[in-house]
Structures are given as structure tokens and as C-alpha cells.
Design a protein around this nucleic acid. Structure first.
Lengths: 343, 343
DNA sequence: AATAGGTCTGTAAGCGCTTTCACATCATGT
DNA sequence: ACATGATGTGAAAGCGCTTACAGACCTATT
């Protein structure tokens, strides 16, 4: 007898034979479009169950249908920042049973464009880009070719495509204002990577808040960071070593803020009591460190969802208008800030 | 004039026409298999460049070739633990220009099997599963159908498939021994999720080390955790509230260890000086907390790479033997442990 | 000189699906 | 009674690619 090696794959024709209808009818039942009589639907559904049919996505994609795949390009997977966004994307996608193709650029720009061409050549129906390093030429080509895409947290550099972001300026403004209202006047600021729009916006928010509260801007208090903990530590250490050190430090994201907290502690000071610290993002860890970090919450999860919903809409109805939305940030007050102790 | 809406997609026939050869020849040049004369190769290559052709993966997949996609199923993306593994996978994959299809189960088991059927129905050439919650029936069906897959860090529950993991037992043994050698005899242990093989193995390593050092096992010192920070905090708090509290605590992973550290601090004790803490994994943050965490390093990145390489081999040569490998862990000594202070 | 085999190429047959299209059938409005 | 349109169905044409397959042309080997 022949050895049973790989069970034969069940195709739409098998189902059609089983239900004694044409493959076209099966297709109509499965995809839910076109006219099908109640009778036929029943027969096919039964046959579907009996055979255990699973549609072949490749064939479907090829035949002109959607591939039901969307591509996601992210810089990396190391931060829970990305994790939160992806969770949102994921949720929304599974609602419409789309699949996710993941591309990690690791900040190497050439990979972004390489992915772009693969994905648009039939593999994906649309593209989500998180923090694209420098919204390069390929985005324009998407626009030209009418290929659906949405930028997430791209922060203002590329303005010809739909995007969802957060109110970075306002968030930083709020965080800084909170510190000012507490009575701080020497507030250090650790920026993010300044070739990213959001980082620039946050610095702008910080500046504007000081201005509005008639506090002079001291450039010595503004240090350039990179959104990561080690450099946050470094910058905070520099800030604290100043002759006239700040009484509070606002970091451009939580990761940096954790670095700042470490630096404060390593200098023998207490976070909160001696030096107030504010972060940005509100990643999960922010509420787990001690003292729990006061931070500007970005609705990352929601950003993921909204971007996905937007993309899915664009795919459904290509004529829908391209939006650009910024979700509201929110100051989350915890225990890392106090009134400054008088000299 | 007709409006230019979407630039016509360039197919293999376009290239063939441009190079004045048959589509078959183009295919042979692109895929690099079959005989092609130098002359033809040149012509085609030139045409390829001129037209900017990108192969349509769906069509290639359908036509019987590989889809050049591998599926990855992970529980979530919140931890840098997964991030490290994915980075390894990613690296190895891009070497062979494979693409990654990502599925996040969020620990919901039914999603695992749903993904399994989608992926195996033509979408992916192989599957990588990180920490499959409970290596269920679908794995058996993979085996039966000869569908290539590799389990990552699955830790011993399913033994019919190839896998790559780490020496969990030995790692825990080493960590515990280190603490014992330092002079600790009352060593608390916070387990991971015990329905996971690795968690069980680590507990076993802890026990064996005590045994080998002739230290009695006190079950009151073993608390069940879940690999996450909050429960780590909880369990450590319980441990420290004991009448005869431990002088050291070994957490089954770094995340829990961070919780333990917080609990120690919140009880007014110093990590290291008063209570030694050891973790497992060596995620990036472990070297960033204060004091820096002594931990058992798992080569996560390497695990990702090896698993991927293994999978790719299986895809290439289906007859290659199925391996099960465990990569060595390594104790990384930092500042979170001291000799116990005598009473 | 005859045969064997390697090299190279194009034709054509699908892969599994969706989607016209043409053709039935049926309820409705006049 | 008839046109009208909505409803339902299957045959067949691809989607863009890979891969036998067959034929043509070359060496080598007997």
C-alpha cells in the first residue's frame, strides 16, 4: 500500500464536490458576497465543516481578492512602547481576520525601503509604519500608486500621508506646567532623538510652558538624549553635576526617565523628595518602579487601534479621505514629584 | 487622456518581453535554478534592472515554489524576553530573505490553533512557536503532515518535535549554588508559571542545589509566581514577612526579580546588602537597575537564531533529522548579592 | 559514425482561488 | 399577458508564477 505521507490538501473543488455545487458557489459562501440561496448555503456550510476546508490565502490573493495581510514595519521590538502599539494593531486586525506581516528595521534605513517593495508587490493589502526613520521616497511612491498606508507616531515630518500620533507638544507642555505649578523653576529636560518629530515637539512643549510661566529658558538644562535609559542616566548625571542643578527633570520618555531616576539615586538623592522626575509614554514599568513614575500618558494601544482601523477603511474604500489624527495625551500623577525643598 | 491611476504592475512577462526571452528563462534567472546561458542571464539581469521587477510572492507560492514566509507565534510582545528572541529570528531570516508573519496569542489558546491552520494552509513554509502554552493537538497534525516547525523555549512538555531551549535546570542549579557558596542557607524561590516546562525545570534545579549542599528544603520558602513583576513583588513581600525570612531570593526570571527588588526596598531593606537577589534571563534592564542584577543569562538571541536556522534546514531538506537542543545558560554576577550578614 | 549525455530554451500545464459572464428562474408591476 | 428586474447558478477565464517536458544544440565517448 502507498505510504500516507502528507494528507492531501483540501481545495475548494473538494468542497464543491462534497456539497454537489460548483466551486464558484463555495467561493460565494465562503467570502459572503454574491447571491447564494439558503439551500446552497446550508449544503456548502455542512461540506465545509465535514472537509475542514481552510482557504489558501495565496490563491485568494492572486485571484484578485485581498490577501488579508497587512504589513507592519517597526524599528525594533525591544521596548514595551512598540509592544503596546502592536497589541492595539493586533486586536483590531483580528476583528477583521487580517494577518500581520512583521518587519523590523533595527533602524537600518535601507531595510525600510526593501520591505516596502516586497510588501507592495502583492503580499500585503496595506502598510502600517511605526516611527519611520525618515519618511523617504518610498512613501511618495505609495501615494502615487494608491497603496494604502498609515504612519504611526511619526510626528510631523511627512505630511502627505495619513497618520495617527499623539499630542506631543501639549503633553510636554502639561508635564512641564505641572512641575512649574509645583514650584519648580529649574527644570532639566532630556530630549529624545531629535531627528524624530515627536522629540522636537516635546521639547517645544517644554519651552513654551516655561515661557508661558515667565521662567527663563536655560539651555544648560536641556540635554540631548536618545529615548534610551543609558543616555538618560548620562544626561541626568550631567544635569545634577551642574553648579546650579535642577530640582526637577523631565525626560522625553519613560525609558530615559528610568535612567534619570537611577542617576538621581546614584548621586545619593531621593527621587521625588529631592529631585522630581517626569516621564513620557506611561509604559507598564512606569507604575512599577519606586517611586512610581509621574508621566505623560500616550494612548499607545489606542494609537495602534486607530491606525489599523484607518488603514482597514482605506483598503475597503480607497476613496475615503486621508486623515491625520493626534490622540490626546494625559498627565498621570504618581509619586515621583514633590514641591521643591527650599534652599 | 486616461488618468494615470495605479502604475501597471510589472510581471515576469514584462521582463521576458523586455529581455526577448521566455518567462521561463526569467524565472530561472531569478530563482537561480536550472540551466541558463551566460548570454541569457545578462540580458535578463539587465531587463530586471530596467523594469524594476519584484517577484509576486503569492504567485510564486501558489505555483509550488516556497512562499518564503515563516510564521511566528508568540504569547505577547510586552517583554523584552520575546524581543530578544525575535531579534535573533529576524537576523537569521533576513540572511535567507524570508519574511516573517507574526501571530500574538495573548495567551488565549484557541488563537494558537486558529493561527496554526491558517499558516499551514499555504501561507507559510514553516512555523516557529515561542512558549506554546500547551503543545496541543495541532502540533501532532504538523508532524503527521510533515509541516516543518520548531519550538522555542518550550521546556520539555512536548517531546515529539524539534526544539531549542536553554539549560533551565542547570541554570537554576548554578544560581542557587552561587547563593549557597556565598553562605546563604535560607534562600527564597519564586517560581514561574508552573504549567510551563522551564518553570518546573528551574524549580528542580533550585531544589537539587540545596540537596547537594545538604541544605534542607523548606517549602515555605518556595512561592508560586507567574514570571511577572507584580506577583514577584507579592511573593517576595510574603517571604520577607516570614518569622524566619530568607536572606536571599532567587526569582525564576528577571521581571519577577525586579518585583522582588521593589519588595525588598519597600520593606526598608537594601538589595544586596540585606537581601541578595538573583534573576533569570538577563534581559537588558537587568544591567540597568540598581544594584545591577545578578542573573542567569539565557542566550535568547542565540536561541532565536538557532531555532530559525534549524527550521530553514528542515524546509530545505525535509529529511534532515529533528534535533532538540538546549543552549547553555551562564551565571552573570553583578551587584545584587552579598554574603549574608551574620545575626 | 553512432550514441550518450550535458546544456539551454520555449511551450504549456497547472497551483487554488475569484470573478465576469451567460443563462435560468422567479416575483412583481403594468 | 408581458416586460422588468432581482436572484441564483455554473462554466470558464485568468491572477503571476514555477516546472515538467520536449526539442535543439552541443560536446564527449565508444
Amino acid at each position: 500500500m502507498a505510504t500516507v505521507r502528507t494528507e492531501k490538501r483540501i481545495t475548494i473543488d473538494d468542497v464543491a464536490r462534497e456539497a454537489e455545487v460548483s466551486a464558484a458557489s463555495v467561493s460565494r459562501v465562503v467570502s459572503g458576497k454574491g447571491y447564494v440561496s439558503e439551500e446552497t448555503r446550508k449544503r456548502v456550510t455542512a461540506a465545509l465543516v465535514r472537509t475542514g476546508y481552510v482557504v489558501n490565502r495565496q490563491a485568494r490573493g492572486l485571484a484578485g481578492g485581498r490577501s488579508q495581510v497587512i504589513g507592519l514595519v517597526v524599528p525594533d521590538l525591544d521596548t514595551s512602547y512598540i509592544g503596546a502599539i502592536v497589541r492595539g494593531i493586533d486586536e483590531e486586525l483580528s476583528l477583521d481576520s487580517y494577518d500581520l506581516m512583521l518587519y523590523t528595521t533595527h533602524h537600518r534605513k535601507h531595510r525600510e525601503s526593501a520591505f516596502a517593495s516586497t510588501l507592495t508587490s502583492g503580499l500585503a493589502d496595506g502598510l502600517l509604519l511605526v516611527l519611520p526613520s525618515d519618511p523617504a521616497a518610498y512613501l511618495d511612491s505609495f501615494v502615487r500608486r494608491g497603496f494604502p498606508f498609515v504612519l504611526i507616531d511619526q510626528g510631523g515630518f511627512y505630511d502627505r500621508g495619513p497618520s495617527v500620533g499623539a499630542t506631543n507638544f501639549q503633553g510636554a507642555y502639561d508635564g512641564t506646567s505641572y512641575l512649574l505649578d509645583l514650584g519648580h523653576t529649574r527644570i532639566g529636560f532630556v530630549t529624545g532623538t531629535l531627528n524624530m518629530g515627536c522629540a522636537v515637539e516635546r521639547r517645544r512643549g517644554y519651552r513654551k510652558a516655561l515661557e508661558d510661566h515667565s521662567v527663563a529658558i536655560d539651555d544648560a538644562l536641556i540635554r540631548i538624549g536618545d529615548f534610551h535609559q543609558p543616555l538618560g542616566y548620562e544626561r541626568a548625571a550631567e544635569l545634577l553635576a551642574l553648579d546650579d542643578p535642577p530640582t526637577a527633570i523631565f525626560a522625553s520618555n519613560d525609558d530615559s526617565a528610568f535612567g534619570v531616576m537611577d542617576a538621581v539615586r546614584d548621586r545619593g538623592l531621593r527621587v521625588g523628595d529631592d529631585i522630581s522626575v517626569v516621564g513620557f509614554d506611561d509604559v507598564m514599568t512606569a507604575s512599577m518602579v519606586h517611586p512610581r513614575l509621574t508621566t505623560v500618558r500616550q494612548p499607545l494601544h489606542e494609537m495602534g487601534r486607530r491606525a489599523t482601523r484607518m488603514l482597514l477603511n482605506m483598503i475597503e474604500s480607497p476613496e475615503s479621505p486621508r486623515e491625520r489624527i493626534d490622540l490626546a495625551t494625559e498627565l498621570v500623577i504618581r509619586e515621583s514629584c514633590r514641591r521643591p525643598t527650599g534652599p
